[in-house]
Design a protein around this nucleic acid. Structure first.
Ligand SMILES: [Mn+2]
Ligand SMILES: [Mn+2]
Ligand SMILES: [Zn+2]
Ligand SMILES: [Zn+2]
Lengths: 153, 153
DNA sequence: AAATTAGTTGCAAATGATTTGCAATTGAGG
DNA sequence: CCTCAATTGCAAATCATTTGCAACTAATTT
């Protein structure tokens, strides 16, 4: 049987020590900027752009380029998941160790409110699509858009 | 009963005259660049980036900025649908008159081959997501990624 | 057919996100 | 405390996309 989805946002944030030890394990240094970035990610339940992370940081704490490099590295190590909401900016969300981070969002097109979504595209249909076209290792990128309760008034 | 999906790629391309009359109807001029762009779109079954359109055009036929402006206009008029494959570039596909153009793609992550997909995210699940979160006018953006037959070898 | 004019275009410069070169700095093991 | 590979800040480079503007032209009006 398949283990049910375990999205990080359902549980308490990972310890910072858990994250840093993962970095050390990969012979990455624990630097001020990195610790600060991880702290911000730890406390945010939704994907953040590099600029949003930058703006959360005390000014002068870290260069924007450093954030870009850090997020690239964290993504490569599988510690963050990259999302794309269709505006020009990449967004990142921390993901748990075993978790592959695959999940989706519901975004308000008026105010940009983000809701984490449990549902996923049905695996049977995806398998049918893969088989029909002889594709292997098929996955998907999926986000929902609509008007949130507050913006309906 | 619901009318089955009628994606333009299932049928013959629209006549150029159909497209130009639509432009005229909206008091837009039929210019050389626009006719050339529409011709290219008409003959391509998959979404194209502005640069791809530009490269298809005989050199000097039209400025890249003109293509950007044309695609923006065509999107506003509902004549093309914009897609996002997650790389930094917008892609456009011609859509039929009544059609809202909503559909999805399966993209090879090795060679960028694109397959048009008939399947869509199940409406019942989407409605449940909308209701659960009190969102209105919920829609989605969905693309599949995998390894195409040719790239599996 | 010439005049009129709103809509278009090319070109260059501006934006915005992201990347990169490089010299100076520093974390972590020994 | 030493050593050195990893990291950082800063500035410049890339890339996609947008925009200001003066010159141009399709389509409508004389
Ligand atoms: Mn999320
Ligand atoms: Mn398509
Ligand atoms: Zn999914
Ligand atoms: Zn769909």
């Amino acid at each position: 049987m398949k283990k049910s989805c375990q999205h990080h946002h359902d549980s308490a944030p990972q310890e910072l020590s858990t994250l840093t030890s993962r970095l050390r394990r990969e012979s990455r240094k624990i630097t001020g900027p990195r610790a600060a970035i991880l702290e911000i990610l730890r406390h945010h339940p939704h994907p953040l752009t590099n600029r949003e992370i930058f703006d959360e940081l005390p000014k002068g704490e870290c260069d924007l380029a450093t954030i870009y490099r850090a997020m690239q590295m964290l993504e490569k190590l599988g510690m963050v998941k990259r999302f794309d909401f269709g505006d020009g900016a990449a967004r990142y969300e921390l993901m748990g160790e075993g978790d592959d981070g695959h999940h989706h969002h519901l975004i308000c097109t008026r105010c940009d409110t983000v809701v984490e979504i449990e549902e996923c595209f049905p695996a049977e249909i995806e398998q049918r699509i893969a088989a029909k076209n002889n594709f292997k290792a098929v996955t998907h990128r999926l986000e929902f858009f609509g008007i949130c309760p507050a913006c309906q008034k």
